Simulated scan of single mutants.
Amino acid sequence: MRKKMKRLAMPLAGLTLLCASFAGHASAADGEKIHVRLAWVAGGVDAPMFVAAAKGYFTEKGLDVDIVDGNGSTGTIQAVGSGDFEIGIAGLGALAQAQQGSGADTMIAVAGLLQKDPTSIISLKGSGITKPKDIEGKRLGTDAGNFEDGMIKAFAEANGLDMNKIKVIMINGGGDRVALLKGDVDFINGWANPDGDKVAERAPIEPPMLFADYGVNILGSSVIVRKDYLAKHGDTVRNFLAALQKGKADAAADPDGALKILMDARPDSNEEGIKAEIKNMPKYEHTTASQGKPYGWIAPEDVTLTISLLEKYSGMAPGLTPAKIYDGSYLPAN
């Protein structure tokens, strides 16, 4: 932290800061232009990037970064793939499926921002559902998309459960939480945050049972780039990730400051929602295998697990290898 200067030194300090300010603006304007497309509308997971931008960490690395909201991983993957954006934020699982689905091998992830899937079993307090086996004989409320993605089946298989002993009730349009609160179903499968939080606002819940803690984890939000861009601009990607790590460190040390920065950048956002996301996101930034590693580092075994789950339960074509989908060599070591 800067020390306070004596009154006599203030005019000179002001001139120095003014010159530094102009130099900073000039540096940003002259820096390498990088267009980044987020996976969705800016949220808590994106706070480190906005902090890095606001505090000049990208500028220090010679980058002029423009952050644009997205409307889903698929759209971001397409936008980066077409060359409209140099860098994107998208689910690694979604990237794997897109590669196999289109037969293209043009993009790769270089960092994992959310590595622990927040998908979970959510039930009310007193439901008796505290371990996987407890959902047998109970009623599951879910929408078609959640059921058809195969992950509830993967959860059942990984934990020796008989799906025939679970009554599945299809509830579309986001009505599963209402059904749970009304007692029409015994549990739902949704994200611990924010779905579990929204239920907990109305009634006490059991601690959400994360699929990721029971053998089923699909890697989430990741930094993606085109392979041809990476081959020509490796240092740019390294510098971007280094600045992002600095932004993450500051956001972790000062969540309220990170919230203010993000709200200044996106004033129409739901401040309470963003605050909750910034608070909860650290729970999902590492798996057991990547715990203690630098922000963004992904364990190879987690990539392998993601691929195998998608192939077995989501109908993804076989043949994708971890090296085709993730390269962690551009991340700073600390």
Rank of each mutant, 00 (worst) to 15 (best):
residue 75 G to M: 11
residue 203 A to T: 14
residue 53 A to Q: 13
residue 38 L to V: 04
residue 238 R to W: 06
residue 114 L to G: 06
residue 103 G to C: 06
residue 180 L to P: 07
residue 166 I to T: 04
residue 328 G to T: 11
residue 314 S to R: 09
residue 111 A to K: 01
residue 252 A to R: 09
residue 206 E to D: 13
residue 89 I to L: 13
residue 123 S to R: 02
residue 23 A to D: 04
residue 120 S to G: 01
residue 127 S to I: 07
residue 30 D to L: 15
residue 314 S to E: 03
residue 58 F to N: 03
residue 330 Y to R: 12
residue 174 G to M: 07
residue 201 E to M: 15
residue 284 Y to P: 06
residue 205 I to Y: 01
residue 117 D to M: 15
residue 257 G to A: 02
residue 66 D to L: 07
residue 23 A to G: 12
residue 326 Y to C: 08
residue 308 S to T: 12
residue 229 Y to R: 08
residue 148 E to T: 08
residue 42 A to R: 09
residue 199 V to L: 08
residue 324 K to N: 09
residue 7 R to Q: 13
residue 56 G to K: 09
residue 112 G to M: 03
residue 280 N to W: 13
residue 87 I to S: 10
residue 109 A to F: 11
residue 327 D to H: 11
residue 152 I to A: 04
residue 69 D to G: 09
residue 151 M to L: 15
residue 37 R to T: 05
residue 276 A to T: 14
residue 206 E to T: 13
residue 237 V to S: 12
residue 212 A to Y: 05
residue 49 M to L: 12
residue 228 D to L: 08
residue 232 K to Q: 14
residue 63 L to V: 01
residue 139 R to Q: 14
residue 71 N to D: 04
residue 197 D to S: 14
residue 155 F to E: 04
residue 31 G to N: 07
residue 318 P to Q: 13
residue 25 H to N: 02
residue 302 D to S: 05
residue 119 T to F: 14
residue 229 Y to W: 13
residue 89 I to M: 14
residue 289 A to H: 13
residue 273 G to Y: 13
residue 214 Y to L: 00
residue 331 L to M: 08
residue 315 G to T: 02
residue 62 G to E: 00
residue 194 P to Q: 01
residue 136 E to T: 11
residue 234 G to V: 08
residue 180 L to K: 11
residue 248 K to E: 08
residue 240 F to A: 05
residue 325 I to P: 01
residue 42 A to E: 05
residue 221 S to T: 09
residue 153 K to S: 06
residue 83 G to N: 01
residue 152 I to G: 05
residue 217 N to K: 07
residue 207 P to F: 03
residue 195 D to A: 14
residue 91 G to Q: 09
residue 148 E to D: 11
residue 211 F to E: 03
residue 322 P to V: 04
residue 52 A to Y: 09
residue 18 L to R: 03
residue 150 G to F: 09
residue 142 T to G: 00
residue 88 G to A: 04
residue 187 F to P: 02
residue 280 N to L: 14
residue 163 M to P: 03
residue 220 G to V: 10
residue 88 G to Q: 03
residue 262 L to W: 10
residue 110 V to K: 08
residue 45 V to H: 00
residue 229 Y to L: 11
residue 160 G to E: 01
residue 222 S to V: 00
residue 334 N to M: 09
residue 58 F to S: 07
residue 329 S to F: 03
residue 91 G to E: 11
residue 38 L to C: 06
residue 250 D to T: 14
